[in-house]
Every structure is written in structure tokens, then in C-alpha cells.
Amino acid sequence: EVYKVKIKIERVLPNGEKVEEEITIEVEGMSEEELLALARELAAEPGVRIKEIEIEKLPP
């Protein structure tokens, strides 16, 4: 199964400015739980906050 994972994050820059970013990846052969863990890892940097995680199962 192939999933499209869209992660919206908010990053706080050293000057205090907040910037929103969106990361989209396609992943194959992982469960939804593994995808959530991967998304959290991607956003685990200091000053980064996850705003939204969207997981979509793509048709075969």
C-alpha cells in the first residue's frame, strides 16, 4: 500500500519569526502508525511544531 503523507509544520526562526512549511512524501510498505512516527521524527527539530498531519491512502 502506498500512502501520501502531508505534514504542516511551524518553525520558529532564531529571530523569533514564525514560518509555516509543508512537507509531502509518498511512502510504501508502512503502517499508519509507522507513518505517524516518521512524521513526528521529521518535525522533531528544536523550534518546530507540527500543525497538521494528513495521511491519504493512494489507489493501487
Rank of each mutant, 00 (worst) to 15 (best):
V27A: 09
E22T: 12
G29W: 08
V2Y: 13
I7H: 00
R49A: 09
A37R: 14
E52G: 09
T24H: 10
E20L: 07
E56F: 13
E1N: 09
K18F: 09
I53A: 01
E56I: 14
Y3Q: 01
E33A: 14
A43F: 10
K51C: 05
K4G: 02
P60N: 06
P14Q: 05
L38P: 01
I53T: 01
I53G: 00
L35Q: 02
V48M: 06
N15M: 03
L36P: 02
M30P: 04
E17H: 14
I50Y: 01
K51Q: 05
A44R: 14
V5R: 00
P59W: 13
L13Y: 11
I25H: 03
V5D: 00
E20T: 08
A43P: 02
E17M: 12
L38F: 15
E45Y: 12
E10N: 02
P59V: 14
E33V: 15
V2A: 09
E26D: 05
E34I: 15
E26F: 11
E17A: 10
E22N: 08
K4F: 05
V12N: 09
P14S: 09
G47T: 08
V12Y: 08
A37D: 06
E52M: 10
E28C: 05
L58K: 09
L36F: 12
A43H: 06
I7S: 00
L13S: 08
I25T: 03
N15S: 11
L35G: 11
I23E: 01
E26Y: 08
P59C: 08
L36M: 12
S31A: 05
E10Q: 07
I23V: 08
R49Y: 14
E28W: 14
K51T: 11
E26I: 11
L13T: 08
E32T: 14
E41G: 12
M30D: 04
N15I: 01
G29S: 12
E56Y: 14
E32S: 11
L35V: 11
R40T: 06
V27G: 07
P59L: 11
E45L: 15
E54A: 09
E17W: 12
L58M: 12
E41N: 14
E33G: 10
E56D: 07
P59Y: 14
E17L: 10
E41L: 15
S31W: 10
G47F: 04
E34C: 08
P46Y: 15
E56C: 07
R49T: 07
N15Q: 03
P46Q: 11
E41M: 13
I7E: 00
E56W: 12
P14N: 09
E32Y: 09
K57T: 06
V48L: 12
P14T: 08
E17Y: 13
R11Y: 06
A37F: 15
E26T: 08
V27S: 06
E33W: 15
I7P: 00
I50G: 00
K18W: 13
K4P: 00
L38K: 06
N15C: 04
K18A: 09
E32R: 07
L38M: 12
P46F: 15
K18C: 10
V19I: 13
K18R: 12
I55V: 06
P14M: 13
M30E: 07
R49I: 10
E1F: 13
K51W: 15
E28K: 06
K4A: 05
G16I: 01
E20M: 07
E21Q: 13
L35T: 12
A44I: 10
I25G: 02
A37W: 13
P60I: 08
E1Y: 15
E52I: 10
I23T: 02
I53D: 00
I25P: 00
G16K: 02
I7D: 00
Y3D: 01
E54Q: 07
E28I: 11
A43T: 13
V27D: 02
E20Y: 14
S31C: 05
L58T: 09
P59F: 14
I55M: 06
R49G: 03
T24V: 14
R11H: 02
Y3T: 02
E21I: 10
M30Y: 14
E21S: 10
E22W: 09
M30W: 13
K51P: 00
L38G: 02
I23A: 01
E10S: 05
E10W: 14
E33Y: 14
I50R: 00
V48Q: 03
E41F: 15
I23W: 10
E10M: 09
E45M: 15
L13A: 06
E22H: 09
A44M: 12
K57H: 05
E34S: 11
G16R: 02
L38T: 04
V27T: 10
N15P: 01
I7N: 00
L35M: 13
E10C: 07
E17Q: 13
R49C: 06
I25L: 07
E52C: 06
L42W: 15
K8Q: 03
K4T: 06
S31N: 07
E32F: 10
N15E: 04
K6E: 01
E56V: 11
E56A: 13
G29M: 07
S31R: 08
V48R: 02
L58N: 04
I50N: 00
P14G: 09
E52H: 13
L38N: 02
R40P: 01
R49V: 09
K57Y: 12
